[in-house]
Design a protein around this nucleic acid. Structure first.
Lengths: 135, 135
DNA sequence: CTTGCTTCTTGATCGAGTCAAGGTAATGGG
DNA sequence: CCCATTACCTTGACTCGATCAAGAAGCAAG
């Protein structure tokens, strides 16, 4: 995958790529932790850098629900969406009914060229929905 | 409006409320600037605090497109969405076709109780679309 | 193997946002 | 109208995610 993107194959890059594949929706800190556990010492700077590079070439996708830090996932190109629990912050993927971007058309595009519609569903996960809201 | 929300009427609050009404999608720094221009010295802390309080009682809405700082708007309760230019960051409102939250149903809700679907359309504004992409 | 450029390490820095303590002023009862 | 109560604002320090910069290390082409 790295070679296909014309990138050099290095230990930090492989570790980050593997980490995000195995832990979708992981934030940067978690990625750092996983990478260090799996392949020894790696600087936090390298992880930040790799995440940005891989996001740039489209091997990873970065997203950031409001009130959360940046998170990364390896599912790219299928235009899926996210469902976030307001209580505990749990995130699950939601397939896009249409499958291609943009899956929605705006009622009025104001002359803009629309490339993508990003949808975030906000709600409560089964566990949090069971008990009364305590925010 | 403030009294209805059981809040004391103070100069910073009125100034912030007016500023956001007149400048939708303003970020915190802009709000601070506008407020100071209109009603003299106000601490940045007060503005942050007021923005949070007003957002809490529902007089303002906070949103934060990825790669941008927090922005505030006074249109609340009509469940409208946003259209953001990838090039220059311009933001315009898009009315929701349905009008009530959630305006979309997820293909698979994973057992979650969905309260709201937040949609961000990404594209290019008329001005940026005219010239070739230079990111 | 060597060269050259990309990538990683180390350590400092930035900036949005928050915390904490103490002073100030909006409200409501007298 | 005035005072007491308490919510609210000011000041200043601080947190934390993320980025910048300079130099060392490692990968790949010849």
């Amino acid at each position: 995958m790295l070679r296909d993107a014309a990138l050099r194959v290095t230990r930090p890059r492989m570790a980050v790529l593997a980490a995000v594949h195995r832990h979708p929706h992981a934030d940067t800190d978690s990625v750092i932790e996983i990478v260090r556990r799996d392949s020894g010492e790696v600087s936090h700077q390298a992880v930040y850098d790799v995440l940005r590079t891989l996001t740039g070439v489209g091997l990873l996708r970065r997203f950031q629900p409001e009130g959360s830090v940046a998170r990364y996932e390896a599912r790219v190109g299928d235009n899926h969406h996210h469902l976030v629990c307001r209580s505990c912050g749990a995130i699950v993927d939601v397939d896009c009914a249409v499958g291609e971007a943009p899956c929605l058309t705006a009622s009025d595009d104001s002359g803009y060229t629309i490339e993508e519609a990003e949808v975030i569903y906000w709600g409560r996960c089964p566990t949090c929905a069971r008990r009364p809201p305590v925010p």
